[in-house]
Amino acid sequence: MTLGNIENRERFLSNIRDKIGGLSADKPVQKPNWSTQPQYRVLKDQNQDQLIKVLKDQCKHIHTDFYHTDEQHLDETLNEIFEEYGVRSIVYTCDSRFQDHKVDTSLKQSGLDTWEWDDNEKEASIQFSEKADVGITFSDITLAESGTVVLFNGQGKGRSVSLLPQNYIAIIPKSTIVKRMTQATEKIHKQVENGEDISSCINFITGPSNSADIEMNLIVGVHGPIRAAYVVVDDI
């Protein structure tokens, strides 16, 4: 990878340094011990099943349809949603979990127009997504408190899939559910600390898109999907 340019840095930072009496930039700064850490107290002691309940309740606040199923009935549940949403075309990410849980076969057999995201066919993939009735992804981490699915976009997992279609479905393996954002950011922080690359685009998605810009009235569905469904799947 080619390194990017940095321009005008020294003058800019030395001006700041003069004002705050900072040391030189290569002296590592230690973060202090914060006097309080309330984030770890949220939903403390809740087990996985209790967290599912929290997630389910939160879905009501974020205008998101909630489904709970198991691997065996996953295709049935998806079909139910397709029917409900009037879905004719589907785009989904190129993610081995679709094969692992046989979702791709059932999608392909559904008789609907399907498209698996293809990085080499960027334009065509975007065009399909733009017209698609639904985009489907797996959730990488799921935050019970806020009802958020976290997607590590990257190879095969196009950003557009969860963004451009009319509707969005997140398949949520039960094991991905954590309490709140704290657990997700902790994990990402660890990756950074270990020198691993992190995803170029991490999406924290909480329900469908919305806006309150007109008289503070909540309008669901602005630029992104208009409806969203979460499908929690046991055993995976």
């Binding site: 990085d119 408190e145 170029s200 685009c201």
Partner: peptide, 28 residues
């Protein structure tokens, strides 16, 4: 700001897209 636990989208971007990725900016 709005009384939400999280807003609909918190998007965390790190650099331009990786070469093997489809969508996302080439240049940042």
């Amino acid at each position: 700001a709005v009384g939400q636990k999280l807003t609909s989208y918190i998007t965390a971007l790190t650099g331009p897209k990786q070469s093997e990725e489809g969508d996302g900016p080439e240049e940042f």
